[in-house]
Write a protein that binds this DNA or RNA. Structure first.
Lengths: 147, 147
DNA sequence: CAGATACCGGACAAAATCATCCGGTAATAA
DNA sequence: TTATTACCGGATGATTTTGTCCGGTATCTG
């Protein structure tokens, strides 16, 4: 569905959001990688993309780390995260890989996949990182395996 | 969404189905690759997978090529093609990459993605290759770009 | 039977993705 | 100011995916 980079990016953003909500606490890379069970250095690359896209805030130095501002908590959607990392291929491209698939020249699956893609876009558009962070905070969702 | 291999596989299967419908005509690899606009040698690999899975029939020698038997036309679903090439990761795996994402330990997006995945499975399960081949035959769907 | 055709199968190569390492830089604190 | 902390950025490597090449084999035709 999404690339590994995107999976890590979403999980990381949600975890950062959850920690930021608890009194604006910043969270370090090592902590993030441990808590979402992802490779540390690779996760760093992905987070840099999110920082450059303005979806996550970072501070260097001691007591530094990553955080979400209150505004980011409210406004950053999953769709923005996915677009920043994976681009729009999954959200817009043709399921059979045709470069110009539309009502004018539809692939044989065009109309079958339209509602699926619409629903996917709707889910990503209407859910903010902050909202999902709240769900994790309340124990209603998890970002890694627990034995 | 799907891998390149899977995109080629679906397009190829549909094209073979379309040609087989016209009096059981067999179609050669070169013809397939041209008509669905795919790399010839790579498409051959994908077709071998479909043949081994019993979803497509092949005949060697002069006047040989690929075809779909009437039974294959009726019974082979898109789901079978996707499973033969990409496996079940896209159809079953967690959107955030958790190896054990279920109602017992759901990821924060688990319940949002359930209906999307269900609908995807439903589309793939209820459409046969033969049915889509008919759509292409009637000019209601295309397998490549036309300028 | 002999030759041509066309799929089969394995080895090989290129590109994208996934992942690591390490020096640089900004920020904090003593 | 100096040392430490922790993100930044480029180089590098491993793995998967994508794509090519070529000899082998089955099949048809003359």
């Amino acid at each position: 569905m999404f690339s590994k980079a995107c999976e890590y990016g979403i999980r990381a953003a949600i975890y950062i959001g959850q920690q930021s909500a608890d009194g604006g606490r910043r969270v370090g890379l090592r902590d993030i990688a441990t808590e979402i069970d992802s490779p540390e250095a690779f996760t760093a690359k992905v987070l840099q993309q999110l920082v450059r896209a303005g979806l996550v805030t970072s501070v260097k130095g001691p007591a530094g780390g990553f955080a979400l501002t209150p505004e980011q908590q409210r406004t950053v959607t999953l769709r923005q995260v996915v677009l920043a990392i994976d681009g729009g291929q999954m959200l817009q491209g043709c399921a059979l890989g045709l470069t110009q698939c539309s009502a004018r020249q539809p692939c044989p699956l065009h109309y079958q996949f339209l509602p699926i893609r619409d629903q996917l876009n709707e889910v990503l558009r209407t859910h903010t990182v902050g909202e999902l962070a709240g769900k994790v905070h309340d124990g209603l969702g998890f970002l890694r395996q627990f034995s």
